[in-house]
């Protein structure tokens, strides 16, 4: 490991400024007391944060996004665990092909998924239903869930399971008492990443969200395309604060880079 030159440190400072500037600006603007986008030059006001609470549109969308993230992450993880077990533990015909198939939504642009889900849900009459939204989100987050769960299973020392079997445990007991507790950290990481991905998704959801099932990012997107006001800034600032707390917790338990490495490619 070598030391960074002063030039490198200046570069780093500029880079971090670039990364944080848009988020910091949102947080500052959110505290304005004026009716338009401006810096809070004459003191901090919570006026626009109170305004969020008076706006049921956003509150409803927030709850819907929470429930959607919760449902789709849970479904994704609970089908990713058995699938990962199959990939990690068995050699079977078509293994590589099925695995590539499960990761393939990563190769499909969300806009393409969006238009496809729109036709599909309309055709089967699920357009506007919560469950329809959940299933489409499961497809989007499955690759992430699968990657994290799979890597925690392949990293597992299999001899612990052999040990349990030799001590008299049946297959099911081995899974419940040894395998599952040992992969829980990976599964939980997969769940969190899935939840966040679902909660943040906008491109695909723009197509499948109906007026009664609009997610928060979609609602915000629609709002921004019409007007950019302090209300949307305070809402965004609130999301940034919540994300920061989640992020600090995640970083403490897993290391952010370990979780997000699963997000690339």
């Amino acid at each position: 490991m070598r030391k960074n030159t002063p030039l490198a440190l200046v570069f780093n400072a500029l880079f971090l400024t670039f990364m944080l500037a848009p988020l910091v600006v949102i947080c500052l603007v959110a505290f304005t007391s004026k009716g338009y986008i401006s810096l809070p030059t004459d003191g901090f006001s919570l006026r626009w944060f109170r305004a969020i609470l008076d706006n049921p549109h956003f509150i409803d969308a927030f709850y819907l996004s929470l429930m959607l993230g919760f449902a789709s992450a849970t479904i994704a993880v609970s089908i990713a665990v058995p699938a990962s077990l199959a990939f990690a533990r068995y050699k079977f015909t078509g293994r590589a092909a099925i695995m590539a198939f499960f990761l393939s939504p990563l190769m499909v642009p969300h806009i393409v998924l969006g238009v496809s889900f729109l036709s599909f849900l309309t055709k089967i009459g699920w357009y506007g239903s919560f469950m329809g939204l959940v299933f489409t989100h499961v497809i989007i987050i499955m690759p992430y869930a699968l990657r994290l769960v799979l890597s925690s299973i392949t990293g597992l020392d299999q001899s612990a399971e052999s040990a349990a079997a030799s001590l008299g445990a049946s297959n099911w007991v081995v899974f419940r008492r040894v395998t599952l507790p040992m992969i829980i950290p990976g599964v939980a990481g997969g769940w969190v990443l899935s939840f966040i991905t679902s909660f943040d998704e906008v491109t695909m959801s723009v197509f499948v969200a109906s007026p009664s099932t609009t997610t928060l990012p979609v609602r915000m997107y629609e709002h921004i395309t019409e007007t950019i006001d302090p209300l949307i800034a305070s809402l965004s600032a609130s999301l940034i604060f919540i994300t920061m707390i989640v992020m600090l917790i995640l970083d403490r338990f897993y290391g952010l880079d370990k979780i997000l490495v699963g997000k690339g490619k």
């Binding site: 001899s159 052999s162 349990a164 079997a165 030799s166 001590l167 008299g168 445990a169 008492r177 040992m182």
Partner: peptide, 28 residues
């Protein structure tokens, strides 16, 4: 394997890391 009543010590120890020493030994 579960019906053979053999004791096995693995190269990697293969301990159950989520259980205490007591629970590891008590498992069988």
């Amino acid at each position: 394997p579960s019906k053979r009543n053999l004791g096995i010590v693995f190269q990697s120890y293969a301990l159950f890391h989520h259980m205490t020493i007591h629970d590891n030994v008590a498992f069988g």
